[in-house]
Nucleic acid binder design. Structure first.
Lengths: 344, 344
DNA sequence: CCCTCCTTTTAGATCGATCTAAAAGCTTTC
DNA sequence: GAAAGCTTTTAGATCGATCTAAAAGGAGGG
């Protein structure tokens, strides 16, 4: 019986090496699949690993090798399915690369973001993918670059000197406006909410420009409550200006779902005498009645892109910054109709 | 000017110690907030840390101290908002405890679960919270205990010897059945889908028993497609048996949302001549019309409970296994009405 | 002034891997 | 048969913290 200490629970590389009659160094080479080691030796070491139930100690390896095989991901909010899908895409790619995701929630607060970013550094992540919290300073990102922390911005961007993965929100807004305009709508409202960040500006600007390009007035921008539950009862806000809209484009599908309910409550027929367009095209869009016409931003794909950007950045830290911006797609369903009698 | 190497990017504890004119050991004590060190010394060290921009190296610490301040979380699927909310609750509590979440997705596949569990062990997580994938063997859990990996089962349970956090699904089903029965419904269908696991059985059994207790027939269990998008068009399946139901209870809100659409498409009036009850009470339940009556299982709370169980388990590895089962709550909205003319 | 006791600080070993530089084996060539 | 050139293996230092056991410093008592 080979001497086995019952005291130390952890089987180390040294134990494996001894059992296989090689040195620690050779065993280490086997693990890392180095071509240096002979076939017969490799087999013997692998056999020993199996017999002893050896588990690789990433922590010890990282200390020496300065790679943790760990990626930090910071999102503002997990309960919003949109971010959950983004995360899902990131996780899939990172996992396939043999790495692991360390997750944190910033609550869209810069102080929290500071804290979790520090914690990620303490844990020695190889890089970080994050949706910058609203109000993040450009200075903050540059600080991180200076610390040599590989970084990717997702969904929102603060600095051009850092990789970015997102969707072409402005083009998406154009698609929405064009669709409604082609149905004859002229008075189109835009319903927004949430914190102010780059994606917010892009969407609003995209709306403004698209309206302007069609010679329409883009003044009807209405702010909705941030709490999902309060949106339905805020639908009346759309009709408090001098001009009465016949259609509304929503900043995202959370608003669209809420307004769909609220407008129905007001006695309007969405897709009939009033038109509604969502943004993001979440899974629920297809499951409500009338089915929601929505501009798809494919968050899973954005997540995958962000993860790939980070992996590339890890292999080449000095490459110039890149932006991967996916095209949006208008999914026409039932919530828009041709303009008829003014709504009411 | 104190000698500072520009070569090594990382500031270590030794650098801090030198700058503060103390030993490495003392600096280490300061970090860990040990009461042993004098007030004046502590201040000097903290000052030095600030000046040098010191970042704690968790990886090095873990190697020696055998604690990684890291918790593994394995969920079957991130794109389902239900699991995203669970994760959100877990993350909040783990974060508050100064630890960090390592996330993985099992896709509800046992082989993937094997893989990610191994990877978590390699990364030296202090413990793991997971929703056992459908088909997980009891043996698998016991293997993990034997390896001294602190473990918590969430939502689903395989073994009584491992901590568990979930909701009382059976009681929730009773609430749903009782509500419908009190409205006069006698022929109630149950719509299910998804993989088979403990939560699945509990919900079905809960339904059966509640129906039986009321002297009603529980034979109308209908299997729905797993893909969300296909559920609406499968609504007709409810009416293919000999007995025509006047109400349906859904396994979860994904099905409920889908059937709400599908039943409407079939010309039924949900909340009028047909009643529908969901399960889980996701955010969307309040935002569709008619508002969905649903049994709330509060996934965020379950997540928080799971995380607290794990933290307790870490402080006392030998305590007997615990189960924290939260009560469900019926949220009555608009999707159920009294039985009138048989539906159709 | 020495001894004890208590508080504060420290040197050096240690965790489990990787890395470097060199040694050991094995062919091949002259 | 020695030199040169490969391939394969290895000893020992190293990463940056923690831990142990003991030393240093200071207060109080006899």
């Amino acid at each position: 019986m080979p001497s086995e200490d019952r005291k130390k629970s952890r089987v180390t590389l040294l134990d494996v090496a001894r059992r296989a009659n090689v040195s620690r160094a050779t065993a280490s080479l086997v693990i890392r699949k180095s071509p240096l080691v002979g076939a017969e030796t490799r087999a013997r070491v692998e056999e020993a690993m199996r017999e002893l139930g050896y588990v690789y100690n990433m922590g010890a390896a990282r200390l020496r090798a300065e790679r943790s095989h760990t990626v930090g991901v910071i999102v503002p909010n997990l309960t919003n399915p949109f971010f959950a899908e983004l995360l899902s895409g990131i996780e899939a790619v990172i996992d396939a690369a043999g790495m692991v995701v360390i997750l944190a929630n910033s609550g869209d607060l810069v102080e929290r973001q500071d804290t979790v970013m520090r914690r990620m550094r303490e844990h020695g992540v190889d890089g970080v993918i994050f949706c910058p919290a609203a109000g993040t300073e450009r200075q903050f990102l540059h600080q991180l670059i200076e610390w040599h922390l590989p970084l990717v911005q997702a969904l929102r961007h603060i600095s051009d000197e850092v990789d970015y993965a997102g969707a072409d929100y402005a083009a998406g807004m154009r698609q929405a406006v064009d669709h409604l305009a082609s149905l004859g709508h002229k008075s189109i409202a835009f319903a927004v909410h949430g914190p102010i960040h780059s994606a917010y500006h892009e969407r609003i600007e995209g709306f403004r420009e698209a309206m302007h390009a069609r010679g329409l007035d883009s003044g009807l921008i209405v702010r909705m409550p941030n709490q999902t539950a309060q949106i339905p009862s805020a639908a009346h806000l759309l009709f408090e200006g001098v001009e009465r809209p016949t259609a509304v484009i929503c900043f995202n599908d959370v608003i669209a779902l809420g307004l769909n309910a609220g407008l129905t409550d007001l006695g309007l027929k969405v897709g009939g005498n009033f038109s509604l367009i969502g943004f993001d095209d979440v899974a629920e869009a297809d499951v409500i009645r009338p089915r929601l016409t929505s501009v798809s931003t494919a968050p899973v794909t954005i997540g995958e892109n962000a993860a790939r950007l980070l992996l590339d950045r890890l292999t080449d830290p000095l490459a110039p910054p890149r932006r991967v911006v996916t095209e949006t797609q208008l999914h026409i369903r039932q919530s828009c109709g041709p303009i008829a009698v003014p709504a009411g």
